[in-house]
C-alpha cells in the first residue's frame, strides 16, 4: 500500500536512511524527474568514461559526539565516501573534495586532530583530498562541525546493490553494529567503551580483494550504514525482487557488541556500521571470497550469513533457529546523528 506523502515538516526520521527518507527524496527531489538514470537512486552515480566508468558520490557527516570510541568525524567523512565508491566497484579513488562548516568557538586544536585523522584515513584508502571549502556559522547556528565529502573513483564493472540473484550467498565482512553501539555507549557513558569500538574503516582495499577472488560471481555490494543490515538488505531484496533468509546463528558479533545490544535492548541488525560490507555472491565463488576476506585484516570475522531465494514478493527474513520471522525497516532510528 503506497501512502501519499503527508508530512509537513522535516523530522529526524527523514534522515534515518529508512522508508521516510526515501519517501521524502521521492516526493521532493525526484518529484519531477523522469530520467531513469537519475531515478536509480543508488549510493553513487556511474558515468561512462572511455572503456571504464567514473563513479561519483557525496556524503555529509554530522556525528555526535564528534570523537567517539574507535574514530571521529574526520575519519568517518573519508570512509563514508570511499566505501560508497567501493560498493559500486570503484576501489581506486581518483579524488576527494571536502567542505567543512564550523561553529564559531570550535577549538582549532580539535580541528587539527580531526584533520590528522582525516589524513590518516586517506592514507589507508590511498586517496587524496584535492579541493575543499571552509565556512563558519554563528554560535548555535550549527552544532560544532559538519563535514561534507565528495569522491570520484573508476571501475571497469559497476556493481549495484540490487544485483542479487536467487541462489546467491549473502556474506558480511565482519561483526555487526559496532559503530552505532559504540557511539551510543559513548553518549550514555555505559562503561563498555574500552571494548566497544566503532568499525569505521575504508573498505576499498578489502573489496578489491573480494572482486579479484569473486570476479563476475560478485553480484551485489552494499554497506550497511544507517538502518544497519536490516535496512540495507531490505533495499537489496526490494530492488532485486528476491527473498533473503538470514541465519541468526551465523551473524558475527563482537562480545562487547552483543553485551551492549542485550543491555540496551537494541537489535544489532538495525544499528549502523561504518566499516562493513554486504556481499551477494554466486555459490561457486563463495569459498574463494570468504578465503580472501579472512586473509585481510578487515575481514577476519567475515561470515556467510544468509541465502537469496526466488520469491513472488521481496522479503527479508531471519531464521532464529527457533523459527522464521520477517525483518522490517523501521523509521525510528534508535540513535540519531551517528554518521
Amino acid at each position: 500500500m503506497k501512502t501519499p506523502f503527508a508530512d509537513q515538516f522535516i523530522a529526524a526520521k527523514h534522515g534515518a536512511g529508512g522508508p521516510a527518507m526515501r519517501a521524502l527524496i521521492g516526493s521532493v527531489f525526484l518529484a519531477d524527474v523522469e530520467d531513469s538514470e537519475v531515478l536509480a537512486m543508488d549510493d553513487g552515480a556511474a558515468i561512462p568514461f572511455g572503456d571504464q566508468w567514473l563513479v561519483v558520490t557525496t556524503d555529509a557527516h554530522v556525528v555526535h559526539p564528534v570523537f567517539f570510541p574507535g574514530g571521529d568525524i574526520g575519519r568517518l567523512s573519508v570512509c563514508g565516501v570511499v566505501n560508497d565508491l567501493a560498493m559500486m566497484g570503484a576501489c581506486d579513488v581518483l579524488a576527494l573534495t571536502s567542505s567543512v562548516i564550523l561553529e564559531e568557538g570550535f577549538s582549532i586544536e580539535l580541528l587539527r586532530r580531526i584533520h590528522a585523522s582525516t589524513q590518516q584515513a586517506c592514507r589507508e584508502a590511498g586517496a587524496k583530498i584535492l579541493a575543499g571549502d571552509t565556512k563558519v556559522m554563528g554560535r548555535g547556528e550549527v552544532d560544532q562541525i559538519v563535514l561534507s565529502t565528495t569522491g570520484i573513483g573508476v571501475t571497469r564493472r559497476v556493481i549495484r546493490g540490487g544485483g542479487l540473484q536467487p541462489g546467491d550467498a549473502v556474506v558480511i565482512t565482519g561483526t555487526l553494529g559496532d559503530h552505532g553501539l559504540a557511539v551510543l555507549s559513548a553518549r550514555h557513558s555505559l562503561g563498555l567503551q574500552g571494548d566497544l569500538l566503532s568499525d569505521v574503516a575504508p573498505l576499498n582495499g578489502l573489496i578489491r580483494q573480494v572482486l579479484l577472488a569473486g570476479g563476475a560471481g560478485i553480484h551485489a555490494l552494499k554497506d550497511p550504514t544507517r538502518g544497519g543490515v536490516t535496512a540495507a538488505l531490505s533495499e537489496m531484496a526490494e530492488r532485486a525482487g528476491v527473498a533473503i533468509v538470514l541465519q541468526q546463528q551465523a551473524l558475527p558479533m563482537s562480545d562487547a557488541g552483543r553485551a551492549a545490544s542485550e543491555l540496551l535492548g537494541i537489535d544489532p541488525l538495525s544499528v549502523a556500521n561504518e566499516g562493513k560490507a554486504l556481499i551477494g555472491v554466486h555459490p561457486d565463488q563463495l569459498q574463494a571470497v570468504l578465503q580472501a576476506l579472512h586473509s585481510h585484516p578487515l575481514g577476519q570475522a567475515a561470515a556467510h550469513i544468509g541465502q537469496v531465494h526466488a520469491s513472488e514478493k521481496p522479503a527479508l527474513l531471519i531464521d532464529t533457529g527457533f523459527g522464521q520471522r520477517r525483518l522490517f525497516e523501521k523509521d525510528a532510528e534508535p540513535l540519531p546523528r551517528i554518521c
Binding site: A243, H309, Q324, R325, R326, F328
Partner: peptide, 15 residues
C-alpha cells in the same frame, strides 16, 4: 504488525 505476522497458524517458510 512489526513482525509481519498475519495469523496464528504456521507462517509460510522461505527456503
Amino acid at each position: 504488525f512489526e513482525h509481519g505476522l498475519d495469523g496464528h497458524h504456521r507462517q509460510r517458510r522461505v527456503g
